[in-house]
């Protein structure tokens, strides 16, 4: 396993139910995202993208297959090799379609929380939260409660929270779904910046093909089968890679 691998999955399969009711949501999914790489996962609704993301996020373990994060085998078959929640806290940042902030915490507290959970000193957590919010352009709104922030601001705070513990992996499930095109692109560019500047492996599930030129690699998923997309399918990406 190469040391600069952020995420690698090998033959991930997820089966729901059994016998006549058996549904294969994901079949032999093999994906690789380097540290510092921003990868898109696209595909129609119901193709298994969220199943893949929740498996990699150690939320919904696969039926079979292996997951390596930062070179460490964390899932082998249906079993986690580590304490999933603790590992998620330390090493995985998760961003969902809706900003999903904790309603009774202010923006800055939402960002501080993962650091507190990880044992950071209050002052350190506060300083880093302020830095992240400034970095993401919402430093001025750090005292606001989530309902007081716009959709874009909330999403930025959620991204700041996902980056709080400097995770080796950032997973984003349709993070631009609730945003208009311009703001959606800004967010995707932000993820790329995070990957490149922080060295995290970022996987973004998206439906928005207009932003695919931003990604370093694109995986396509259909009927539970995942494959690496080529430039033939996505000329924007090809143009960027040629440039």
């Amino acid at each position: 396993m190469s040391s600069n691998v952020g995420i690698e999955t090998q033959g991930l399969t997820k089966v729901y139910g059994s016998g006549h009711t058996e549904v294969v949501a994901m079949r032999e999914a093999t994906v690789r995202a380097e540290a510092g790489q921003c990868v898109a996962l696209i595909g129609p609704s119901g193709s298994g993208k969220s199943t893949f993301l929740t498996a990699v996020g150690l939320i919904n373990l696969p039926t079979s297959g292996r997951i390596y994060i930062a070179g460490q085998l964390v899932v082998d078959g249906p079993h986690a090799r580590i304490d999933s929640r603790s590992f998620r806290r330390r090493s995985i940042g998760y961003v969902t379609q809706k900003a999903n902030l904790i309603g009774f915490l202010r923006a800055r507290e939402n960002v501080e929380l993962p650091m507190h959970l990880n044992g950071a000193a209050p002052k350190t957590a506060r300083r880093r939260a302020d830095e992240l919010l400034d970095y993401l352009g919402v430093g001025a709104r750090s005292h606001g409660y989530p309902p007081e922030l716009s959709g874009g601001e909330q999403q930025r705070v959620a991204i700041a929270r996902a980056l709080a513990n400097e995770p080796s992996v950032v997973l984003a499930d349709e993070p631009t779904g609730a945003l208009d095109g311009k703001r959606g692109r800004q967010v995707i560019e932000l993820f790329r910046k995070v990957a490149h500047e922080h060295g995290a492996a970022v996987i973004v599930v998206t439906h928005d093909h207009r932003t695919l030129d931003v990604f370093d690699a694109i995986y396509e998923m259909e009927d539970g089968v995942i494959r690496l997309a080529t430039g033939d399918h996505f000329p924007n990406m090809l143009r960027r890679s040629e440039a």
Partner: peptide
């Protein structure tokens, strides 16, 4: 009333 927040806490790894 807090179930969603609690789920979110678990998602970000709260013990």
């Amino acid at each position: 009333d807090k179930l969603h927040d609690i789920a979110l806490l678990k998602l970000i790894g709260a013990p």
